[in-house]
């Protein structure tokens, strides 16, 4: 039918793995925001959810790194991380290879996306699904943008990927949801883990919520690395989600939680 839902959220592994180490007054409103997003997602009655993630070498490595990839499997598994480390139970996630194939075929008109019939989800997808689909009921199609192994996918191509996903979703009879996941500023897995540039995050979220394409695409990677860390490269997933949605965004939650290593973000965006 069309795109029926768009949103973005954080995916840092500390959100579940170090859950109990955050003060409750910071953690609980964040979890409550995920729950609001879950209800909005459910209310949109999606037949499939495309999760645009920035994965961290669970599947794609520097031996053969795609700028973009989408899953085309019957089912997926995750998390790849140890259960006692991520504190998210292992599960099998239902896919839809025929729908994937139709979407990918349309996307290939404008974006050279790799397809993958095997995909093991890491925290980039599993942490959001843990909150947004706790019953494991949804059909999921994973998508990835290389935010991790330079040379990275350019921001304007991330935008083009989002536009292509929108065109493909609108051409499909199914109801499609899109969720971008990633950090804004953060320095994950370094001794700086917990450093968060809140003014930079709020500026980015402002550009994102206005769906200001020019402003979102104006960051250089050098600036992002200096001010928002290597974790900031994941703004690509937010940018792709904005391109797919087209409307203004509503930030349901933003607050730094240092032990989770990220400014914890939950937001939805109007389809326009």
């Amino acid at each position: 039918m069309s795109l029926v839902f768009a949103g973005v959220c954080s995916h840092a592994p500390g959100i579940t793995g170090r859950e109990e180490r955050a003060p409750r007054e910071l953690r609980d409103p964040f979890y409550a925001a995920y729950d609001r997003m879950r209800r909005a997602l459910e209310d949109s009655r999606p037949d499939a959810v495309i999760v645009i993630a920035a994965e961290h070498f669970a599947n794609f490595f520097m031996n053969n790194m795609p700028a973009f990839a989408m899953g085309m499997a019957e089912s997926y598994t995750g998390p790849i991380e140890a259960v006692d480390w991520l504190k998210v139970p292992k599960r099998e996630i239902r896919g839809d290879p025929a729908l994937s194939q139709r979407l990918i075929t349309t996307i290939l008109d404008t974006v050279d996306v790799a397809y993958a019939e095997e995909w093991r989800f890491d925290h980039g997808i599993m942490v959001p699904l843990h909150f947004l689909d706790p019953q494991n009921r949804m059909t999921v199609i994973p998508a990835n943008i290389n935010c991790q192994g330079p040379p990275l996918t350019p921001l304007h191509r991330a935008w083009a990927f989002g536009e292509a996903i929108r065109r493909a979703a609108d051409a499909a009879p199914e109801r499609i949801a899109v969720i971008g996941t990633g950090g804004i500023s953060h320095w994950p897995a370094t001794p700086d883990s917990g450093r968060i540039n809140e003014p930079w995050d709020r500026e980015f979220l402002g550009r994102w919520a206005r769906n200001d394409r020019t402003a979102m695409l104006s960051y250089t990677d050098a600036e992002t690395y200096a001010e928002a860390g290597q974790g900031g490269f994941e703004i690509r997933t937010f940018i792709a989600a904005a391109a797919a949605a087209g409307g203004p965004g509503q930030v349901l939650h933003y607050a730094p939680i240092p032990i989770y290593a990220v400014g914890c973000t939950v937001a939805t965006m109007e389809i326009a």
């Binding site: 180490r21 330079p150 370094t190 001794p191 700086d192």
Partner: peptide, 29 residues
């Protein structure tokens, strides 16, 4: 251990995960 590594072996030599604070700074956790 990463902070101690920088004190013993010097700055990170490659990649995009360099230390941006001080090895004496505990940011969180």
């Amino acid at each position: 251990r990463m902070r101690d590594g920088v004190l013993v072996h010097g700055p990170v030599r490659a990649g995009i995960y360099a230390l941006t604070t001080s090895p004496h700074t505990k940011v969180a956790g």
